[in-house]
């Protein structure tokens, strides 16, 4: 009976069983799929893999994916900072409603998100006739894909920043302003350094989603190879053509993106934890200089 020695833990066999079960689950459902992406891509060796990656359509898809992310992220970054600033630093009525509104895109199925913009910009949509008259293409073209991706990734950065900025309070900013800093100076010198890791964390997550989004983009994309195909859509096309090596080669690029995302995310988490720990270590003995 080891109960006396370690009341807060399970007995050894139980611990072993739980660990084994958890590992088995993680291996089967997460580890094996990740391995399979690269194994399938390299199934016929490195030559066909490199050739598949060098396909002009695949390269075009990679380029488009990067372009969409580069256009979407800054917009959602500015929104995230603005929304978090308003919510975290001020009191106003309807604040919780606004927070819920920001979360809304998380709850909407990507396919429904895509449909929303078809109803507005599509041929039978509100602006459909006007757009057709002026020969502007939004749906089945790049603008539609950007708008749909923006919708999907709206919450990511704001959600990271709101709790962070709420926890930091507004003393430091108030001090800066009362010492005569302008709004922009205060933001750049005080707020931004405080939230930089949280901001980066949000951007990393938003980027992974923006580059990997499938459902919403699939609805509004024209699926034209080399033109309106992002990498995830290109994976689908190749897969449906039974071009397994091509599909998994393209998928392996996204798999690498996922690994880089996880790594970057973990590094940022460590940095944030370290800074919080340093801050807490500094704080307790009352900082009453001056």
């Amino acid at each position: 009976m080891s109960a006396v020695r370690r009341v807060n833990s399970e007995s050894r066999p139980v611990r072993w069983a739980l660990l084994t079960l958890a590992f088995l689950f993680l291996f089967l459902f997460l580890g094996l799929p990740l391995l399979a992406v690269f194994a399938e891509a390299l199934r016929q060796g490195f030559g066909p893999y490199a050739a598949a990656l060098a396909e002009p359509d695949t390269l075009a898809a990679i380029r488009l994916t990067v372009v969409v992310a580069l256009l979407v992220l800054p917009l959602n970054l500015v929104f995230g900072v603005a929304a978090a600033w308003a919510i975290a630093k001020f009191d106003f009525r309807g604040k919780s409603l606004l927070t819920t509104l920001i979360d809304l895109p998380f709850a909407v199925s990507p396919v429904v998100a895509g449909l929303l913009f078809i109803l507005i910009f599509g041929r039978q949509g509100w602006f459909g006739p006007w757009l057709a008259e002026h020969d502007i293409k939004i749906i089945f073209a790049l603008p539609g894909m950007i708008i749909a991706t923006m919708f999907i990734t709206v919450p990511y950065i704001a959600r990271e920043l709101i709790p962070l900025m709420q926890a930091q309070g507004k003393d430091e900013e108030e001090a800066a302003v009362s010492l005569g800093a302008s709004g922009w100076q205060m933001f750049r010198r005080v707020s931004l350094p405080n939230i930089k890791w949280g901001l980066l964390y949000g951007v990393i997550l938003a980027n992974a989603r923006a580059m990997g989004e499938f459902g919403a983009v699939s609805v509004v994309s024209g699926h034209v190879r080399g033109e309106t195909n992002t990498l995830p859509l290109h994976v689908e096309i190749l897969y449906n053509e039974y071009n397994s090596v091509g599909a998994f080669a393209a998928a392996s690029v996204l798999g690498l993106l996922a690994l880089v995302t996880l790594l970057a995310k973990t590094v940022v988490e460590w940095r944030m934890a370290r800074e919080t720990a340093m801050l807490n270590a500094e704080l307790p003995p009352e900082k009453t200089d001056k």
């Binding site: 997460l30 399979a36 580059m211 990498l231 995830p232 994976v235 599909a247 998994f248 798999g255 996880l262």
Partner: peptide, 18 residues
């Protein structure tokens, strides 16, 4: 860190791999 893989791996990749 690895537990977050499904957040980072695009769904289409998960789909064809599974």
């Amino acid at each position: 860190a690895f537990v977050d893989l499904p957040f980072a791996l695009p769904t289409a990749v998960a789909g064809i791999t599974l």
